[in-house]
Simulated scan of single mutants.
Amino acid sequence: MSEKENHHGLGERLAEGYHRMLERVRQRLDDIEHDTGPTLKRAIDDAQERATELGELSREESAKVAEYLRRDLEDAATFVSESGRELGNWLKFDWNLIERSLADLFANAVDHTRVELEQFSERAAALGEWHTGEVTAMGTLQCKSCGEELHFHGPGHIPPCPKCHGTTFRRLTDAEQ
């Protein structure tokens, strides 16, 4: 197997891990909705541990995916909270293009995240960069070097920019079209 094929396989594995961990976070948040003790951080930590226990991802991989998930949920919640706009505007494309169950899953997790946004506001403000090799949620990323847009219709591995091979991106919102 070539290095490129191996790298692509790892990206797909991490994207699938992201999706499974997001589902576990949503389930955990549903379970703890009325309990003030557990937080989003704990729900993500639990999903991360479960992915490792089940052998879906290594400990290192699940830690990466958990960080990607935190970043995306915090960024989406910040956008929705600060702008008062809909999550679809953060994604920068129509909900109809997304698998409905995945869209509902992400929206539910964002709603829970928004409740906890006060705790994450400083960290969320420092976020804003996505890098090649990471996994991101659905939405549109723009290359910081050349402006090329990458569209993700589900969790996906971030490749280098197809236009300039740049490796740093920022999320576009509907208002930035």
Rank of each mutant, 00 (worst) to 15 (best):
N6G: 11
R13P: 07
L14H: 05
A15P: 00
R20W: 03
R20Q: 07
R20G: 02
M21T: 12
M21S: 14
L22I: 04
E23L: 15
E23I: 14
R24G: 09
V25L: 06
Q27W: 13
Q27R: 15
L29A: 12
D31S: 07
I32K: 09
H34V: 12
D35F: 07
T36R: 14
P38D: 12
T39C: 07
L40V: 15
K41P: 06
R42F: 06
R42G: 14
A43H: 09
D45G: 05
D45V: 04
Q48F: 00
R50S: 09
A51V: 09
L54N: 15
L54T: 15
E56W: 03
R59I: 00
R59T: 02
R59K: 05
E60K: 10
E61G: 02
E61T: 07
V65L: 00
V65C: 02
E67G: 15
E67Y: 07
E67H: 09
Y68P: 03
Y68M: 03
L69K: 01
L69P: 00
R70S: 08
R71Y: 03
D72L: 01
D72E: 08
L73M: 08
D75F: 00
A76P: 06
A76G: 11
A76L: 04
T78P: 04
T78G: 11
V80P: 06
S83Y: 05
E86G: 00
W90D: 02
L91Q: 10
F93Q: 11
W95L: 11
